[in-house]
Computed example of a mutant assay.
Amino acid sequence: MGMSVGGGGHEEGEVPPVMNTTPLIDVLLVLLVMLIITIPIQTHAVKLDMPVSNQPPPPTDVEPQVIKLDVDFDGTVYWNGETIAGRQDMEQRMREAAAQAETPEVHLRPNKLVEYKHVAAVLATAQRLGLNKIAMIGNEQFAD
């Protein structure tokens, strides 16, 4: 295969200018065998019998109630534009909102200058009382 037979006019001890391709062919054969072995492993599939429903999904015509919470630079919280008297008032309103049949969405808009502890307190209170649909609004103001 990779041998050259014959005189060819080369001096004794000189390396013939023919490339030995035997190691290259051996490596390619090993790669081919590995490829052939791994292909059946990749084609395994698990067949599942998934339930089929003939009914359309329920209509979502009802818009969810949205509670807009604004946190001002000094930590003052506004509930739909109305100033909240204190933490107790905010917790009471959140309890009432969480008790509704359809949990409302909370859109929280912090001021750019507010300390994080005020925003974290509002988020923690909302989550603890069961308001899990919380969105941060106006994040583009923090891009700079």
Rank of each mutant, 00 (worst) to 15 (best):
T22V: 13
A98G: 09
N20S: 04
G13W: 09
H10S: 12
V62L: 09
I84Y: 10
I41N: 05
G81T: 04
W79Y: 12
Q42G: 09
A121Q: 12
E11H: 12
H44N: 08
D74L: 11
N20R: 09
Y116Q: 14
L108I: 03
L123V: 14
V15M: 08
S4F: 08
P57N: 11
V46M: 03
V71H: 02
N111P: 00
A126N: 13
V33Y: 00
L113F: 10
E140A: 13
Y78S: 08
D72M: 15
L35A: 05
Y116W: 09
F73C: 06
M50T: 04
G138I: 09
I137A: 01
D70Q: 14
F142C: 05
F73N: 10
R87S: 05
E12G: 04
V71I: 02
D61C: 06
A45W: 01
L123R: 15
R87V: 02
H10C: 07
V52E: 10
I67S: 03
N20Y: 07
K133T: 03
D89I: 06
T103W: 06
G9F: 00
L29H: 02
V77N: 07
V71Q: 04
D89R: 01
L129P: 14
H10L: 13
G130D: 11
L28G: 11
R93G: 08
A135R: 08
N20K: 06
R93P: 01
A124W: 00
Q100H: 13
L31M: 05
H44I: 01
A120V: 14
N132D: 04
P64V: 15
P57K: 04
M136L: 06
H44S: 10
Q100M: 06
G9N: 06
A101L: 13
R95G: 03
R93N: 09
E96N: 13
Y116V: 13
H107Q: 04
E115R: 15
K117F: 04
V33M: 02
P64Y: 14
L29R: 07
A124S: 15
A120K: 12
K133Y: 06
I134D: 12
G81N: 01
Q127A: 03
K47R: 02
M50A: 06
P57Y: 07
L24A: 09
R109F: 03
G2R: 10
M50E: 12
Q88F: 03
V119C: 03
V5E: 12
V62C: 05
R95Q: 12
L31D: 10
N80W: 08
E63C: 07
I36Q: 09
E12P: 05
V5T: 05
S4Q: 10
I67G: 07
P64E: 07
P16G: 01
E115A: 14
G81K: 05
P58N: 14
L28Q: 04
T103P: 00
G81Y: 12
L28H: 04
D49I: 05
L131Y: 15
N111Q: 07
G7V: 12
D89F: 00
L29Q: 01
I41M: 02
R95C: 11
G13M: 13
S53Q: 15
Q42M: 09
T60N: 10
T22P: 00
M3Q: 07
L35Y: 02
W79E: 13
G9W: 03
F73W: 13
D61M: 10
M3E: 01
L24T: 10
